[in-house]
Amino acid sequence: MTQTTNPLVFLEALHQEIQQTEYGQQPVELYEPIRYIMNLGGKRMRPLLTLMATYLFSDDWRKALKPAIAVEVFHNFTLMHDDIMDQAPLRRGQPTVHEKWNNNSAILSGDVMLVNAYGLLLDVETQYLKKVLTRFNRTAAEVCEGQQLDMNFETRWDVTEAEYIEMIRLKTSVLLGFALEMGGIIAGADDENSALLREGGINIGLGFQLKDDLLDVYGDPAKFGKQVGGDIIANKKTFLLIEALQQAQGDLKTELSGWLSATEFDKTEKVRAVTAIYDQLGIRQLTEARINDYFTRGFASFGQVAADPARKALLTEFAEQLIGRES
């Protein structure tokens, strides 16, 4: 079997394929927003994981290129619509599609992106196509379920840890799991190995999202790439806030409730005060322990996959680089 030991080989192939992918031409107002968001970059970790999962079982990993891009197109479609719902002005440091064009254009272009994702999935070999489409349909519905739960949580103060974990599992982690699972399916992996890849991806995704919550409070502003404390300022229901709300008692509970109910406040002071409450409750240590637990579970699943150890090492090393990030 031919050995590929550098993830840059996969990344370069992905980049070339994305540049060559045609979404449509006319009307230009429908297709230009798609080209715009797809060229904003990002880590491309989902399609990369698909290629690496295919490579675990096959030298012909290039046959997974178009399906891998389908995952990236779908992911960006969800971002385009999420940005409208969140009224977000920026995506990856650039104006969001609805800001650069308008809400209606972003909705319609997003719809076409979903259609394009299915078109790219049709490149899967016939013998695996039904299984891939079935799993993709379930995953796509779960992502929407997670987004709805996230929206539901905006008006609730009794969100439990279990509810929050389920929400991020659906909203962010299942697509990571599917990206890996699909790579295995395309390469002819059996159901057991494909399921191990999916479970590994879901657990890595859970740890990844919890780390994002943690970095928003404790990250280095120079490395994090966005305002540290933004979640605190916005009263966003994160793992850290949910744990603090459940654990705070007496004066700490009163102080935390005061900051959460305040309508006028100094942002810097609020971030400092709420972070100090987290410190007193040991929330950082609790979150780090939970992150490590999910990462450990993820790598344990990868370890059970029946594939060439050298190829598995390439996958796990890439995953370790992702989770070791500070931005």
Score class of each variant (00 low, 15 high):
106 A>F: 09
42 G>V: 13
109 S>Y: 11
186 I>N: 07
297 R>Y: 02
171 K>M: 01
131 K>V: 13
246 Q>F: 00
50 T>A: 09
260 L>M: 12
153 F>M: 10
171 K>R: 09
178 F>I: 00
163 E>D: 07
286 L>E: 11
207 G>I: 07
30 L>K: 11
66 K>P: 01
123 D>G: 00
102 N>K: 09
13 A>L: 01
240 L>M: 15
138 R>I: 14
144 C>G: 15
96 T>C: 15
115 V>E: 03
155 T>H: 09
142 E>V: 00
223 K>A: 14
305 V>S: 07
32 E>I: 00
233 I>Q: 04
182 M>K: 02
44 R>I: 11
161 E>C: 03
110 G>A: 07
232 I>M: 01
99 E>F: 06
90 L>T: 13
71 V>M: 15
324 G>P: 13
214 L>N: 00
293 D>Q: 15
326 E>W: 02
57 F>Q: 01
256 L>I: 04
41 G>W: 14
141 A>G: 08
301 S>D: 07
250 G>E: 09
38 M>K: 01
25 Q>A: 14
27 P>T: 08
220 D>E: 12
101 W>D: 11
257 S>Y: 01
174 V>S: 03
91 R>F: 03
62 R>P: 01
107 I>C: 02
243 E>C: 10
244 A>R: 07
280 Q>M: 12
291 I>G: 03
13 A>R: 13
36 Y>A: 05
311 R>Q: 06
211 K>G: 01
201 G>R: 05
214 L>A: 09
21 T>R: 08
286 L>H: 10
132 V>M: 08
163 E>N: 05
56 L>S: 09
130 K>S: 13
26 Q>F: 13
221 P>A: 05
148 Q>S: 15
257 S>D: 15
285 Q>L: 04
220 D>P: 11
247 Q>I: 04
187 A>N: 07
296 T>K: 12
